[in-house]
Write a protein that binds this DNA or RNA. Structure first.
Lengths: 214, 214
DNA sequence: ACAAAAGTGTTTTTGTTACACCCATGT
DNA sequence: ACATGGGTGTAACAAAAACACTTTTGT
């Protein structure tokens, strides 16, 4: 085994949320270009910890779902020093408020995935890959619950699926399928939004946990 | 962005094959312990290229299916210098003959996954994760074809599935399902093994390519 | 009263599972 | 002739898809 080499290892995180009925990713501006939050992996950092640390420092996000995605290491991906990036994606519950201090600067903002500006390096590839992974996971896990607040309605959950999949789903079939999974339960509370019948609120039986199904 | 840091990046590859009706992984011996082939990522290497290079150098394997699996970076995973490993798995077609020079040394051998010795570092985790990924991929891709020679019988393909899944499958249902995928075709040739009716040989319509199905 | 979203079952279609016998060859 | 694996179809069942109307609230 040889000794160290001049190679930079970074983590880059694509944080997703549902915002204004669309899937959005959180970008930070650096100099003139937009990029994903992230940065170098410290010498004593676990990779996941490094990702959480940079995410918290650059965006204030913490305590959210985070999953390793893929490691990008093409020699040409960064100009200058050779950099290898361990890419992650993260899920932020709808309605999560970023700290004023973070948003006010204008250096950090949610951008709908179909309206993204040009991103630094290969960050657009990371977002595209994460989006595909997320869509695939809807079919065999309870991951969508990570994009909703603790209490939510079935219509909200259906909307999350529809937005990510980009197609409309049948309400009755959707509800039947979700309830059969036995991963959510009624709270007894009602969501009273205006102008129509109130909806029952549900919550995850195992919040914070993403289960595989079937 | 900071400059380089004393952090070692390696690739580690779990090469699988079907050997004597079992799933086996290729191990190399280093000092007193067995480990997966792999080694440091050079400064100009693409990650995939680094994996292929180490694999070729240490085992003689080349031109085989290779897929990135996961990146392992817990600070305690290596003693001494901090090392981050980009893990891969590779698939070697049954019957592939390793070069005499490689095998003769006794430093390199196929080991059934359920009879593995203690492995260096977290290499046992890599093998376990790769094995799960491989089993999962059988359900939604044509990946099993990468473990068979160019021409093969349906019984051989079924055996690959059964060995990886660890369960027996119904012959008629299996054949129906596989043929419905329309990813293999008859060659017209027959496999004449001894003592029974010859089997039709098939080959992949897109050899070397792993398609997603359904 | 009306607009707007919530809630609710049945039928049809599709895919999956279970299952047993004859065939072609080598010995 | 027998042993060995190769090859084949159908019926039962389960899962997924299609489909429309009533309910409850706010205005």
């Amino acid at each position: 085994m040889t000794t160290g080499m001049p190679l930079l290892l970074t983590v880059e995180i694509a944080p997703f949320t549902i915002c204004a009925e669309r899937l959005a990713v959180l970008l930070v501006r650096q100099a003139a270009t937009w990029r994903l939050p992230g940065g170098p992996v410290g010498c004593q950092d676990d990779l996941d910890d490094a990702a959480r640390r940079h995410l918290a420092q650059q965006t204030g996000l913490s305590g959210i779902y985070l999953e390793q995605l893929y490691t990008f290491g093409a020699p040409g991906r960064s100009s200058g020093q050779r950099a290898v990036a361990v890419a992650y994606y993260a899920l932020v519950r709808a309605g999560y408020s970023l700290a004023e201090s973070v948003l006010a600067s204008g250096e950090t903002r949610w951008v709908a995935v179909d309206e993204m500006p040009h991103l630094a390096l290969d960050h657009a590839d990371i977002v595209a890959l994460a989006q595909r992974r997320l869509a695939a996971k809807l079919a065999y896990s309870t991951i969508a619950l990570q994009l909703l607040p603790e209490d939510f309605t079935l219509s909200q959950l259906q909307a999350v699926h529809e937005i990510i999949l980009g197609e409309v789903l049948d309400k009755r079939n959707f509800r039947k399928r979700i309830l059969a999974l036995d991963c959510i339960e009624v709270t007894g509370e009602m969501a009273r939004r205006h102008g129509h019948r109130p909806a029952r609120l549900f919550r995850a039986k195992c919040p914070g946990q993403v289960d595989f199904i079937k």
